[in-house]
């Protein structure tokens, strides 16, 4: 009997170890090593911090880095603001027979590729786009306005592409909440803001944390939305990585940027978990 179990362990453990060691651990060590490789004054291979020095010395690089971090945090916060009322409406206000339908309707657009969704916004917003056409035919404006390629549009695009990952955990945590908690507070004379901040938000905090982690990570690592909706001025850090890899073919510099981005995302997620006193395993499952 014992033998079977050890054999079982081995059979389950081997593919999982292969997956994690070969595709997760080794590649990230390689990323770190590549970022530290360079050439010395004579052109021989050597270990060096020069790629990190470049990052700190060139203003444009760390400016983009900070900008990306701030915008990704802002995206996370805005996504929460936009989706929370909808999640609350679906789970607590609308008559129960519509809950399932509205939830499915909410999920549908996110099964479609992000590229298609961004493309849809481009058709709507660009200078020759649908919204401009409608505004002009209604006589509201005379000349078309370019609504793409600015920060506001880019943020809207990022919020749009991330909403699902906030909505799903919010809906599932609010669904698990017993309505009588709110009723009791109401009967005892609590005002709506008190109920909201003292009961609903603490109860949903688990869902908020897991949603926020995923949204932040996706916004930080997004490439499509900033390049297509933000255009040349978007200055998103993943574009710098892409440029180093594909355009300049400077893989060591690109690896350094990649490693910095990885550090940033790990740090912010770690800090978020610490602040809300949660563990990664619990927040993600």
């Amino acid at each position: 009997m014992k033998n079977y179990f050890r054999l079982g362990l081995l059979i389950f453990l081997t593919p999982v170890l292969l997956w994690l060691v070969l595709l997760i651990v080794i590649p990230h060590i390689e990323l770190l090593l590549m970022s530290l490789k360079g050439t010395d004054d004579y052109g021989n291979p050597a270990w060096t911090f020069s790629h990190y020095a470049t990052f700190f010395n060139e203003k444009i690089y760390w400016y983009t880095f900070v900008r990306t971090a701030v915008y990704a945090l802002a995206t996370t916060f805005l996504t929460f603001l936009v989706t929370f009322p909808v999640a609350f409406y679906i789970t607590k206000i609308v008559s129960k027979k519509f809950t399932g339908f509205l939830t499915i309707l909410l999920l549908m657009p996110f099964w479609v590729s992000e590229l298609v969704r961004v493309y849809g916004w481009m058709i709507l917003l660009r200078e020759s786009g649908v919204i401009n056409h409608i505004l002009i035919s209604l006589g509201i404006i005379n000349t078309p306005i370019e609504m793409l390629y600015n920060d506001v549009t880019m943020m809207m695009g990022l919020v749009y592409t991330s909403m699902l990952f906030m909505a799903v955990p919010l809906i599932s945590s609010l669904e698990g909440m017993d309505d009588s908690l709110i009723e009791a507070a109401h009967d005892l004379g609590a005002s709506p803001p008190t109920i909201f901040f003292k009961i609903i938000i603490p109860y949903a905090s688990h869902g908020i944390t897991s949603g926020a982690i995923v949204v932040f990570m996706l916004a930080l690592g997004n490439y499509l939305t900033p390049t297509l909706m933000g255009g040349k001025n978007s200055l998103w850090f993943t574009e710098q990585i892409y440029n180093e890899f594909i355009a300049s073919f400077n893989w060591n510099q690109g690896a350094a940027f990649g490693f910095l981005l990885l550090l940033l995302s790990s740090f912010i997620i770690w800090a978020g978990l610490k602040l809300t006193r949660q563990e990664l395993g619990r927040a993600l499952s």
């Binding site: 999982v16 170890l17 994690l20 595709l23 997760i24 651990v25 080794i26 590649p27 990230h28 390689e30 990323l31 590549m34 982690i213 995923v214 990570m217 996706l218 930080l220 690592g221 490439y223 993943t238 990585i241 892409y242 890899f245 893989w251 690109g254 690896a255 990649g258 981005l261 990885l262 995302s265 790990s266 997620i269 990664l280 395993g281 993600l284």
Partner: peptide
């Protein structure tokens, strides 16, 4: 520890996974 490691791909930006696997395969 292994379970924690198995969850990390969810919090690694996709771009980073892409470049680190590219680098490893290339090396």
């Amino acid at each position: 520890g292994l379970y924690f490691l198995a969850l990390t791909p969810l919090v690694i930006p996709g771009v980073i996974l892409g470049i680190s696997i590219l680098l490893t395969a290339n090396s």
